Simulated scan of single mutants.
Amino acid sequence: MAPLSSPEKPNPKRLRLKKSLRSLIEFGGGDQIDQNQFQSTTRKLYDGPAGAVLYLASKLSLHDPLVGRIIKTRRFDVTEFRSILDIGSGAGQILGHLLRETHPEARLVACDLSHQMLKRARNRMDSARPNYLSADLTKLPFRDESFDCVTCGWVLEYVSDPRDGLSEIYRVLQPGGSLFLLATEDKFSGMLNSRTWKCRTYNRVELKQAFEDSGLPWKEQHWFTPIHQFLRLGGIIVEATKPLEAEAIQSL
């Protein structure tokens, strides 16, 4: 686990260079079209051939096994939770590990914007345990405080403003509940990934602020391996906790 410290703010010259690279490489649709159109484009992408190869791509990129390692070694301990929502379940990059590592009586709900991805997940998991539901991250069809854990892997990149998604996660989380989220960072590799998967990227400092604005302060930053941490690669992987009511009142 990495120590919880504020991400280092880049100097102005580095910011200008990164902005120029982003304009040349990164997919710009998330900033240039409205959220409804963005989601329509996303749904078509994952309903089609790109979505069909996502599971294989997650294996080849090692994202699937590396996420599994974080969960299996209990760096993010899912054994304590009894009601878990997995957002963006289509490729099973997190869902498969939840099936193996959570308590057998824990309630698992798998949701995805793409109906076709949900069908693929259902077939791939070959388990009757999860409930599968098509849902929009910004309009989750669940009551307040329905889950004690939410996992969300590479989904927030398809929301124009991260606060729209994070505020919904905050709403459905129970006080004291945990969020485990992975997002594409605005590094060079992330920009290439953005172009491939038609998504946006996030600056670590700005995303941390969006979490705080949404009432979900970061508890821990995770890295796939020490090498990833040393080279600052692998994207943004964070654990956040919804404050207990008493803590929330004290912070006001």
Rank of each mutant, 00 (worst) to 15 (best):
Q116P: 02
L62G: 11
F38P: 00
F180E: 02
K119F: 10
I25K: 03
K208H: 13
E245V: 11
L15E: 09
A183C: 08
G177A: 06
F180G: 02
Q221F: 15
L21G: 02
L60F: 11
D213N: 15
R171C: 02
A248L: 09
L216W: 12
I249D: 15
R204C: 03
G176W: 07
C152K: 02
T201I: 04
L182S: 11
D77W: 08
G215E: 00
D161V: 06
Y170L: 04
S83Q: 07
L85Y: 06
F180L: 08
L182W: 07
A183K: 13
S189W: 11
K119W: 09
G234R: 02
A50Y: 13
R129A: 00
S89L: 06
Y202H: 15
S194R: 04
K9F: 09
L179N: 07
V78K: 08
K187F: 12
E212V: 14
K198S: 12
G176Q: 05
L95G: 10
T184W: 00
P141E: 06
Q32A: 15
D47F: 10
S167V: 13
D77L: 03
A135E: 00
D64W: 13
P10Y: 10
I249S: 10
G90H: 04
R22W: 01
G28M: 05
A248Q: 11
L24I: 14
L99H: 00
I237Q: 08
D213I: 09
E26L: 06
L17N: 07
A240H: 04
P141N: 05
L56N: 05
N203Y: 07
S61A: 09
L233W: 15
F81G: 03
A50V: 14
I237C: 14
D86I: 09
L62T: 15
T241N: 08
F147H: 03
Q37D: 13
D161L: 09
S23N: 15
H97D: 05
D34S: 13
A50G: 07
L173N: 04
Q209A: 15
A91M: 03
I236N: 05
L216A: 03
G177F: 06
H97P: 01
A2H: 14
E220A: 12
V150K: 05
T79I: 04
V205Q: 08
F27N: 14
I227D: 04
F38A: 09
N193E: 05
S83H: 12
I70F: 05
L15D: 03
L156T: 12
L156R: 01
F27T: 05
I236G: 00
H97L: 07
V159S: 01
M125T: 11
V159M: 08
E220H: 13
V155H: 10
V109C: 12
R69S: 15
K18F: 02
T41Q: 12
Y132W: 10
K242V: 00
K44N: 13
E80P: 01
M191W: 00
L179E: 01
I25F: 06
Y132E: 02
Y132H: 03
T41K: 14
T196D: 04
H222W: 11
K219M: 10
L17I: 10
A183H: 12
A57S: 14
G165T: 00
L21N: 00
Q221C: 14
G30I: 01
